[in-house]
Design a protein around this nucleic acid. Structure first.
Length: 285
DNA sequence: AGCTCGACCTGCACGC
DNA sequence: TGCGTGCAGGTCGAGC
């Protein structure tokens, strides 16, 4: 499910419940997420304070007063839900796929739900975060000021893959997934089948790279503002739906008209690297 | 080293 | 109604 805008929406929703708050009690109803929960998971969290809740690509990172960092990933179907207030029944009833429950000193109960269990939680010493296997190879944050057309072109210079594959690769740029890759490429009017290395160079190549970097920033910013996209699983932690799915220009719109100005094309679905790609073959070159 | 593809799971929409 | 098929916001790791 969740790409950068959904993860950022989740992070912002969790802030008031978790940042500055202490884990009062932690319960795991299932240990076998994508990877088993860490040993002594509850014991290593209980009593600790969340000093900061940040995001890197699609990862949520909670810095704990113990010196550990809790790494959380939502996989395809993960979501968090917050319930506030002390009206919790003595024996809390948990729903199907509610795998982890945090009771926080803020008064909030934070539940992690993930039907497909592709999500996970890990605990590692904070000093090892940047060199951790999962973190060290991640590419630039697309909303960072240092990310621009030149940086994108450089990252794509020596690859033989398509733009679709390159943008989906978290080592090239962090946080994009199937939806926002398609949406950014349509906004930049670039074909998902174009070789990513054709962003590198002067003149037209440079223009393509700048247009694509700008499209990535714009679509992610707009999607965050809309609270992400709610297709099946994504909800904001307060239970509200994201709204960006209403502003898709290509994703899941096969057979519908391209909305780009001056374009009379029809959106097509193709398969690249085993995943659906949606694009307009007329204006996206 | 770079790239493709299968595997990991559950649920849902579809056609027969 | 029931059952089989295919598809879904991700990504790791085996095997070219």
């Amino acid at each position: 499910m969740p790409e950068l805008p959904e993860v950022e929406t989740v992070r912002r929703g969790l802030l008031p419940a978790m940042q500055g708050a202490r884990f009062v009690s932690v319960s795991a109803h299932r240990e076998d997420l994508r990877w088993p929960l860490p040993h002594q998971f509850a014991a290593r969290l209980e009593g600790m304070t969340v000093e900061a809740l940040t995001r890197r690509g699609k990862y949520l990172l909670a810095d704990l007063s113990s010196g550990d960092t809790l790494i959380m990933h939502l996989g395809m179907s993960g979501s968090f839900h917050i319930r506030n207030g002390s009206a919790a029944p003595a024996r809390e009833r948990h729903g199907a796929h509610d795998h982890v429950v945090f009771v926080m000193s803020s008064g909030a109960t934070v539940t992690f739900n993930d039907p497909r269990r592709f999500g996970f939680m890990l605990l590692i010493p904070r000093v090892e975060l940047l060199t951790h296997k999962l973190m060290r190879a991640i590419g630039p944050e697309p909303l960072d000021g240092r990310f621009d057309g030149a940086a994108l072109a450089r990252a794509c210079a020596r690859t033989a893959v398509s733009l679709k594959a390159a943008l989906s690769n978290q080592k090239i740029v962090a946080g994009l997934g199937n939806i926002y890759v398609c949406e950014a490429l349509n906004r930049a009017r670039l074909s998902p089948r174009r070789k990513a290395s054709t962003l590198n160079g002067h003149g037209a190549a440079k223009k393509r790279a700048n247009a694509l970097a700008n499209a990535i920033k714009t679509v992610l910013t707009d999607a965050i503002e809309a609270g992400g996209s709610s297709l099946r699983d994504h909800r904001r932690p307060d239970g509200e739906l994201g709204l960006f799915q209403h502003r898709f220009r290509v994703y899941d719109r096969a057979g519908e008209a391209c909305t780009n100005r001056g374009c009379t094309g029809t959106i097509r679905r193709i398969v690249q690297n085993g995943r659906s790609t949606f694009f307009c073959p007329v204006c996206q070159r």
